[in-house]
Design a protein around this nucleic acid. Structure first.
Length: 419
DNA sequence: TCTGGGGTCCTAGGACCC
DNA sequence: TCTGGGGTCCTAGGACCC
């Protein structure tokens, strides 16, 4: 059996742990730049705040209904996630952290255990240890565990937030209940087509012919169909090094001068380099993109990206920043208001697996320098040591007007209790 | 004025090899 | 009239996930 454990309204719940006065109150969490809604408490959902809602369009509703608004605090959510995962891992050694708020656990050889009881225990331990409420679905396949989880989340009082699909009747009942567009692995495009054909539920989908599924949804669709029919074909996955790493941001205001973009692009490249070094990879290509604000019909639009092949694989902040800026110079055009830029590194090789080039070779000093920078930044705070091409003062800023404290990772931001 | 930021996998088709 | 048979690699685009 697999379990899928999913934190309820994770970001909103993280904020609530440290603001218990907001229990049962509507909360939303905004994206970077306080742009749009990316998490909502149940109360906010009930009040009609849609996922992805632009914050400025809903400001009136926030005010009227006393909806508490937070900027996203990834330092907090990342740390809370780690705590939840650590507690869950005590229940089974086979665990896949699927996302910041979800994990699959495999229960192999647990025939003589009561999974319902284990589920209850998991909820209890996580709630007691972190304050985060979770929902749990058990089933013989990952896709069915996802379905079971949806039922646990939708019917908390009937299920106690733990649901188990362990019989044919339960499987069929669950699939008949689940709209096809809510099935894990069926996105908007496929859902549209399926609904147009009269396929309304997960159950209808599970009865489609293999030929049709293969032709229209390829091998991924076949796998999904098998999983929904109770045949396990998706196993837990190990943590693999990433194949691409991106650092991209929207700006608080528009930039029209290349110098402003140069600073941003440098910083993004440096961040990519840090992430690369963390997973001990080097990259062979780097992409830079810039574009204007696509929502503004009144401004001329322009957007472009460029991929640069590097002369040798590297994870040096200096080299990556240099090439990212070369790319920027090639795609930058005067006369536009830029709102967003990003750097993506690709074509990874293991760091030590270095292929020497005939003409250009990395400066051997860089590796040492980068290691030193990483050590210093780790000990006294990230971004304390920078390249000169990055802004030394905070000339740019992200809008984060409702940022909560980093309660769990900064001693000077620890929660204050007034007794 | 204001609209996020990451990722993965699969397939078809073209270019190329012998 | 008639023009083989087998591969690999790369890329763009489309789908999906959180």
């Amino acid at each position: 059996m697999f379990a899928l454990v999913d934190c309820n309204n994770f970001y909103a719940s993280c904020e609530r742990v440290f603001r218990p006065n907001l229990n049962n109150k509507p909360i939303v969490v905004l994206s970077n730049n306080d742009g749009c809604v990316i998490a909502r408490s149940n109360e906010a959902k009930t009040l009609g705040v849609p996922m992805g809602a632009a914050a400025y369009q809903f400001q009136k509703l926030f005010d009227e209904k006393n909806i508490h608004v937070f900027s996203s605090n990834y330092a907090l959510y990342g740390d809370m996630s780690m705590r939840v995962m650590t507690l869950l891992n005590n229940f089974s050694p086979d665990m896949e952290v699927y996302s910041i708020d979800e994990a699959f656990l495999k229960f192999e050889g647990f025939q003589h255990f009561n999974l319902a009881e284990i589920g209850k225990q998991m909820r209890y331990k996580v709630t007691k240890g972190t304050g985060i409420p979770v929902s749990i679905g058990f089933a013989p396949t990952k896709a069915l565990a996802k379905v079971a989880n949806k039922i646990a989340k939708k019917f908390p009082s009937q299920t106690g937030s733990v649901h188990i699909i362990d019989s044919e009747e339960k499987r069929i009942k669950a699939l008949k209940w689940l709209p096809v567009e809510d099935v894990w692995g069926i996105g908007r495009q496929h859902a549209k087509r399926l609904i147009a054909m009269g396929i309304k539920t997960a159950y209808d989908f599970s009865l489609l012919s293999d030929e049709w599924v293969k032709k229209n949804m390829a091998i991924v669709g076949i796998r999904l169909k098998k999983e929904l029919n109770g045949l396990s074909v998706l196993d837990l996955e190990d943590i693999k090094p990433k194949k691409n790493i991106a650092t991209t941001r929207s700006f608080e205001k528009n930039y029209s001068k290349i110098v402003d973009l140069q600073e941003r692009v440098s910083t993004f490249a440096v961040t990519c380099a840090e992430k690369l070094r963390k997973q001990k990879s080097s990259c062979n290509s780097i992409m830079v993109f810039i574009h204007t604000n696509g929502h503004r019909n009144d401004l001329p639009q322009y957007g472009k990206n460029i991929v640069i092949k590097l002369p040798y694989a590297t994870n040096s902040s200096i080299i990556l920043s240099e090439y990212a800026n070369k790319g920027l110079q090639l795609i930058f055009k005067e006369g536009y208001q830029y709102k967003k830029a990003g750097v993506i590194v690709m074509d990874f090789v293991p760091e030590q697996n270095y292929q020497a080039s005939l003409f250009e070779n990395p400066n051997p000093k860089h590796a040492k320098l980068m290691a030193t920078m990483d050590t210093i930044n780790k000990s006294i705070g990230s971004k304390k040591i920078k390249l000169a091409s990055q802004a030394l003062d905070r000339t740019w800023k992200m809008r984060q007007e409702k940022l909560s404290k980093r309660y769990t990772t900064r001693l000077n931001e620890i929660i204050t209790i007034h007794a």
